[in-house]
Nucleic acid binder design. Structure first.
Length: 257
DNA sequence: ATGACGCCTTCCAGGCGA
């Protein structure tokens, strides 16, 4: 079973690119973030033609998450309880006996911006919510966490410590997800590898290696035992067939059935 | 310090992303 996460940065603008990737990589389940499309306008037909059904939690212009899968998707939750004002950032479904959630965590903007405490509060709600939902079934959560877990995950290394995405407040909350029983699947298999999932569009950041690892798949320990491989699909951060890529690469994990 | 690139939106200059 192949499970993926991808911040697509605008699904309508990215549709042909996403379909190209689905055709090439054939994920069974994919959580998407920053779909930036209202549910009524979601391009379901294009996904159905590609063999996927999709559950969506979108809004106009910003944010938005969705789960596409080759099998039935039963929606269990749309939106993080108590955090509705932060936008459409979470959806959870049951897919083929697996509990899967995808999240677009708030950015926070700047340590002195009002969005920063909002980000921390959103994480506190996520930590609390996860402690309830991940128990008792195979569970996996993937998304754009907008936190750099460790200096190894940032092109600037320790020089970025204390700046946005790299503060103790953010990293301790990411650690709380792990302390709650989840495993960072990429880091689990590749403890020392530096691999990024996001590069700024500007200034040639991709080609200069100026990236961050902020897109993660986290699984319960039972899921980690089924893990075969995790790929940060850097090739799909490049232009394909004349189509513009998202600023995030897809990330996928292969699990034994 | 700023801008760079690309997305979005009562449509096009300005906000936002990370």
């Amino acid at each position: 079973m192949r499970i993926a996460t991808w911040n697509v940065n605008g699904l309508r603008a990215r549709l042909d690119f996403v379909l190209h990737w689905l055709h090439s990589r054939q994920p069974d389940v994919v959580g998407m973030q920053e779909t930036k499309v209202e549910d009524d306008d979601f391009p379901h037909a294009a996904f159905e033609d590609a063999g996927y059904q999709v559950a969506t939690h979108g809004q106009k212009g910003w944010n938005g998450v969705a789960i596409a899968a080759k099998r039935d998707v039963e929606v269990l939750q749309s939106g993080l309880p108590g955090q509705e004002d932060a936008g459409a950032r979470l959806i959870r479904a049951r897919v083929g006996g697996l509990g899967f959630a995808t999240v677009y965590c708030p950015n926070g903007k700047d340590l002195h911006h009002a969005d920063f405490p909002m980000k921390l509060a959103w994480y506190d709600a996520l930590i609390s919510w996860l402690s309830d939902v991940q128990a008792g079934e195979p569970f996996l959560i993937g998304g754009d966490f907008n936190i750099v877990p460790a200096p190894l995950d940032c092109w600037r290394g320790k020089d970025a410590d204390g700046t946005i995405f790299c503060t103790e407040q953010e990293r301790s909350r990411y650690q709380a997800l792990l302390d709650g029983g989840l495993v960072d699947l990429f880091r689990h298999l590749q403890p020392d590898e530096q691999r990024f999932s996001w590069w700024d569009y500007r200034g040639g950041a991709f080609h200069r290696g100026m990236g961050l690892r902020i897109d993660m798949l986290l699984g319960t320990k039972a899921m980690a035992e089924r893990l075969r491989a995790v790929v940060i699909d850097r090739d799909y951060r490049r232009k394909k067939a004349g189509l513009i890529a998202s600023d995030h690469a897809p990330v996928y994990a292969d699990l034994d059935d």
